[in-house]
């Protein structure tokens, strides 16, 4: 288990909800903090990194845990 400051479980939610909820959550966090995002939507796997790189957040890692996809997103400045 990696270190993170907060967690967001988007299991069962489809696009656009995983990205939308991640944005709302991470906007309230301080720069440099890490959010662990769990999603079951395969569509989010391409969209989360594409969105993050555009707005300046960093995906520290992503992995599959069973039928879930887990992303560690570090909030940009």
């Amino acid at each position: 288990m990696k270190e993170h400051d907060d967690e967001l479980d988007c299991s069962g939610l489809n696009c656009p909800m995983p990205v939308l909820k991640t944005k709302l959550k991470i906007d309230k966090m301080d720069a440099g903090k890490v959010l662990r995002v769990i999603t079951t939507d395969p569509g989010a796997c391409n969209d989360l990194p594409a969105w993050a790189s555009k707005v300046g957040h960093e995906i520290l890692s992503n992995c599959e845990e069973g039928d879930k996809y887990v992303f560690y997103v570090k909030r940009g400045a």
């Binding site: 656009p16 990205v19 594409a50």
Partner: peptide, 8 residues
């Protein structure tokens, strides 16, 4: 235009 751009 990706939907996440509309979100931002």
């Amino acid at each position: 235009i990706p939907y996440f751009d509309f979100i931002e």
